[in-house]
Simulated scan of single mutants.
Amino acid sequence: MRGADGYNESLFTTVRLEDFVPSNHPLRSIRVWVNEALTQMDGSFSAMYEADVRGGRPSIAPEKLMRAMLLQVLFSIRSERQLVEQINYNLLFRWFVGLSIDDAVWNHSVFSKNRDRLIEHEAVTELFNATVNMAQRRGLLSGEHFSVDGTLIKAWASHKSMRRKDGSDDGRPPEDWRGEPRSNDTHQSTTDDESRLYRKSHAAPALPSYLGHVLSDNRHGLVVNVRASQANGVAEREVAAQMLADVATPTQRKTVAADKAYDTKGFVKACREINITPHVAQNTLRLGGSAIDGRTTRHWGYTLSMRVRKRIEQCFGWGKTVGPLAQVMVRGLDKVDQVLTLTMAAYNLTRLRSLAVLRPQVAQ
């Protein structure tokens, strides 16, 4: 007998959101680790609101905001408006964020209002550090062998926003710039004044950009340090040296792998001064020759580092295809750094989940 095409709304229901999420869904293990990290951040969240003495209604729980921001990265959601819309009708997203079926979803402007607060208290950085600590406790980090690299992050600005700093072209149309040489010394973006013109190669156009820097552990390719900076020709090596200083110890020699862009005497010297052996790819075409000689390249460890260092490209590829790093939709170095750090935290969580499938003891 053919069934009727219709349905009746029940006045009451006993179905839980938990029942809609498959037991083997990837978000289940990720949510456990996220909640573990957020629990450790409870004191920081309390400090964020201690200075707010105006009273009024309770704010939206920062834990829910952080879970929602992670969803935006994990599911390639383009904007906060679309994120709020998805949370409103997507039961999986409601479950992950921590909302019941009856809970109302906040307005998208809540993310903008709380972004500065999260930056001021470094909440996203603390979440990222928590993912690193979880990997450390599970024995997934070597703590001895690292790789470092940088990537170009396109700013939320266009060529039309580049105007002369002295204001001499204020009367010209924004699109009338062809044939005029531009440089960071003479021009600045009116949309994002902290971005800088930068190009990947001589064949690529110079675009308003930032640089993202990542330090990864060679054992499983997990990210252990991340920073954003303004785009210039020396930022990659300078920031890399700063990140390496955070993991260096005077009693244990460590190694760092890097591509030819890091084959400079200054970077190699900076690494050796902090007891880190630079396994840098040799740039034989550089004027004066490579800064790395046979004393380093003759060892098997150098060859192994050259192979393993390519794993660091996976986090950049993931961040630009799944995550929002191809072109960030925020302006200012602090906000770009927050987006980059959140993306790498999400990447670490996905790697932890993958490793848990291969090594069930990791999930414990």
Rank of each mutant, 00 (worst) to 15 (best):
Q86T: 06
V226S: 13
S112W: 10
E175G: 07
W106E: 05
L211S: 08
F93K: 02
Y7S: 14
L70M: 15
R16G: 10
A363F: 00
G143W: 12
S59T: 14
Y347D: 08
V21D: 01
A346Q: 09
A261W: 12
E9M: 11
D102T: 13
V226E: 00
R67Q: 14
L17H: 02
P205D: 08
W177F: 15
I77Y: 09
R286H: 05
T284C: 01
R172Q: 13
I30G: 00
A240Q: 03
L92V: 13
T296W: 07
T297P: 03
S158G: 08
Q338H: 12
P205R: 13
R351G: 04
V224Y: 05
V226T: 13
R298G: 04
G319W: 09
G288Q: 08
M66W: 02
K165Q: 14
D19W: 12
V84H: 01
A204D: 15
A326Q: 12
R286C: 04
E194I: 11
L141D: 07
T303A: 15
G3M: 11
K200L: 03
K310D: 10
T13Y: 09
G288I: 11
L140Y: 03
S216M: 13
A241H: 10
L38P: 10
D103Q: 07
S189N: 03
K113V: 07
V339C: 03
G288P: 11
E85H: 10
S305E: 06
Q40P: 00
W318M: 06
Q86A: 11
Y89L: 08
L304Q: 13
P22E: 09
T350C: 11
Q40G: 13
V256T: 09
T191F: 02
W95F: 07
D259F: 07
I101G: 01
R295F: 08
F75L: 12
Y210T: 02
G323F: 01
